[in-house]
Design a protein around this nucleic acid. Sequence first.
DNA 1: CATAGAAATGCACACGTTAACAATGCTCTT
DNA 2: AAGAGCATTGTTAACGTGTGCATTTCTATG
Lengths: 332, 332
Amino acid sequence: MSVTIKDIAKLAGVSHTTVSRALNDSPLINPETKERIKAIAGSMNYTPNYSARSLVLDRSYNLGLFFTTLHTGTSAGFLYEAIKGVNDVIKDDYNLIVRGIDDYKSFHKVNRKNFDGIIVMSQSESDQSFIEYASDKEIPLVVLNRPVESVQVMNFVPDDQSGAYRLTEYLVQQGHRNIAIIEGKQGFKSTQARRDGYREALHKHGISVPEAYYVSGNYDLESGHTAMSKLLELPDRPTAVFCCNDDMALGAVKAVTERGLSVPEDISVAGFDDHLFSAFMSPALTTVRRPIEELSRAGAETLLKFIETKHSEKSVVLFHTELVIRDSVKSI
Amino acid sequence: MSVTIKDIAKLAGVSHTTVSRALNDSPLINPETKERIKAIAGSMNYTPNYSARSLVLDRSYNLGLFFTTLHTGTSAGFLYEAIKGVNDVIKDDYNLIVRGIDDYKSFHKVNRKNFDGIIVMSQSESDQSFIEYASDKEIPLVVLNRPVESVQVMNFVPDDQSGAYRLTEYLVQQGHRNIAIIEGKQGFKSTQARRDGYREALHKHGISVPEAYYVSGNYDLESGHTAMSKLLELPDRPTAVFCCNDDMALGAVKAVTERGLSVPEDISVAGFDDHLFSAFMSPALTTVRRPIEELSRAGAETLLKFIETKHSEKSVVLFHTELVIRDSVKSI
DNA sequence: CATAGAAATGCACACGTTAACAATGCTCTT
DNA sequence: AAGAGCATTGTTAACGTGTGCATTTCTATG
């Protein structure tokens, strides 16, 4: 049995209410008794029962960080940066609960009593039902990474389309005209945004793309490898390939070297995300940096502020993506 | 205001006790009323208040997954596999709380009321105080990844030393005699185990290692790069380098190619961990697979079983590591 | 038909905390 | 000196759930 405020009260010769107030720094309590009680609590090694507190205060001190899935499509680096960003912000005040939405059989346990707030790192529209569910239950909610229309939420997203646009334009500026794309996982919003940026840039420069230059992938290493293999077998091989994330770019480079060709001499490769390892690949990967950690931090901060003040701007905020030029693209 | 069992009771014309029993499938309740109550609960969209339940049952339904740190030394892939492994096991029954131990200012909130069980993914002895704290508070505890002596706990660790031994022996079998090592983060147990395996193998084959062949690193990409740079400047450059993890191996390869040399023609490189990307590097990395996901899954399963049965074997269980031969080591 | 016992349900309290309201003692003002 | 007002503490109820014990109703047995 652990110590409770009543135990402390008995020892201090006061009521348990006084103890509660003293430990919560209520101004109602005489500073001297306050100190005395705190000392006793310390010496008894008291720790509050959060279940009891939660019950009466109607707060769980739990924060949810939910990903679309923890299986295919979520890269390790993405998960890592997101968790780091959020954990940096919440300090000792909250528990961070990490989970894949597709791991839930039912959303039963997801409710206001169980979560003071929820951060959804949304990668696909398949999350829509979850987001609507949470929004419906009036759980404070921030959606990151994917713009969500139907529901009014706080929504932070990286500007993928613009990043893809600038990257593609850079390829064009380097003299490339035959530029292929290895696409991300079907159904992911980011897949679409990056494809759109790519098309927009090519269209603006009057470059048309043969159907065969669109190759599908699913964001993992293996899919980049097989996609690039297909491209290399084409009669009119592209001179540059835009891979929709860095993982696939790594797989793609692998496919190139396996054939005795080299990047960027024989074919240029660019990625997206700027993973930790991208600067250390050979050749170092030209890519687009996505500020996931900043995004997560901002999301967590906004959520906490909302929980405290019940006040927020429910709108989409774009986070700037940044072209990172390294060595995997040759000027021709 | 959300619905409570009292609301259901009123509607069903029974006492809230009956409702509680019905929803918990108590055999005391008439099957018919049980069904009727469940139906009403369903239609009212009832979800139990876990704070209240926790208070009376003295269980939090929270599981902690704690890492030594979420900053340097913990690679993204490691975090990813661990979270995936644990989440696969716990299903809808528990909340998984993820956190870096060094993020805690005080362990105040870590107690039996708040956590039904804890999994420590321990990388360094700096966790010792945390482990002792949790063990002291009699929180069901599993320690993964690092053997812990002083305290009796359930302890699952990969056999790093044997892995490093086999890898090093393989290098010797390929004809290498000048084998350097890029070490992991100081103070991490894995650093020591891998170094020991390396030394043991070389010693067994009567190979002595010059002092300059021990280069320090800290498990991140950059440190592998700088460490390899140092090795390449040596007058008697090694013919093979054992990097204590794959991240550093990637950095090391980078340093080699930057100098116009190549792996494995000019120098062989081996890693440790078998990260997702390691098979896709150029050249594909020879390394040692560490079954982190299995380890995590086993840890979670054991923990859950212990929570339910209060029965366990408190001993160290070794998980087999596996030599993965790819293309980054040349036979000379 | 009476009664023992089982089946089904309800009453009342407990878990540990917070908070509205009441009560006490003190100081200061007129 | 009496009463207003403040500072400090206590009394009591509430949050939603589970459970030991009492109670009621029904069934079966002699």
